[in-house]
């Protein structure tokens, strides 16, 4: 490999890395297709998705087009430590413009689902899941001064004030993959 000059970022040779990982038992592309990115294989790397992606715009490493290429080459380990998929705002500009109906958003989220299985999940996401299970709201606040200030009852008409509904939601969540993963305590 040619040594880069000072100040020039190292160039990742994706083909070289993929050679190493080709030995992986299960192909990463099959895993992410299983997790919702069925159309990944139709990508022709035209770059339409990258042109409209907010993550690409502000310099995240594995934005949509590059992530898809990496997956098609068989990369996995390189992706697990990177926060890019968790920064995706799910805006779906990419889905709108993709001429091959790949839905790069689905690829981003399929990679999240793969990362979750490897416990590569941000603390904030765990906190959101815990709040969703405990209260029925991923964003939950105990301070209710703001509601009172604007003349509303302290509690909204949600699981927050409906015990039966919260119990129903917990039953649903306990019957999903979330329970199998064991990421959060899920008591009755």
């Amino acid at each position: 490999m040619i040594e880069p000059e000072e100040g020039v970022p190292t160039i990742l040779n994706l083909s070289e890395i993929s050679e190493r990982e080709r030995e992986e038992e299960e192909k990463v592309v099959d895993i992410v297709r299983e997790f919702g990115a069925e159309n990944l294989i139709y990508c022709m790397q035209c770059g339409s998705c990258a042109a409209v992606c907010p993550l690409a715009r502000v310099g995240f490493e594995w934005y949509n087009k590059k992530l898809i290429k990496a997956l098609l080459l068989g990369l996995k380990e390189e992706l697990l430590d990177d926060p890019t998929p968790w920064a995706c705002v799910a805006c779906n500009r990419c889905t709108e413009v993709c001429p091959r109906r790949v839905s790069p958003f689905e690829v981003m989220f399929a990679v999240r689902r793969m990362m979750v299985e490897e416990f590569a999940i941000p603390t904030l996401a765990i906190e959101g899941l815990r709040a969703l299970y405990e209260y029925g709201h991923a964003v939950y606040m105990t301070g209710r001064e703001a509601r009172k200030k604007v003349g509303l009852p302290e509690k909204p008409p949600s699981t927050d004030s409906d015990e039966k509904a919260l119990k129903d939601l917990k039953t649903i969540l306990r019957n999903t993959k979330l329970a199998e993963l064991g990421l959060i305590p899920m008591n009755d």
Binding site: F109, R113, L124, A125, G128, L129, A138, D162, T176, L178
Partner: peptide, 18 residues
């Protein structure tokens, strides 16, 4: 009455589609 989080992107959509 009894509505909950939609669920938002960082929660269930990141776990599993069903």
């Amino acid at each position: 009455m009894g509505q909950s989080c939609c669920p938002t992107w960082g929660t269930m959509p990141s776990i599993d589609i069903v």
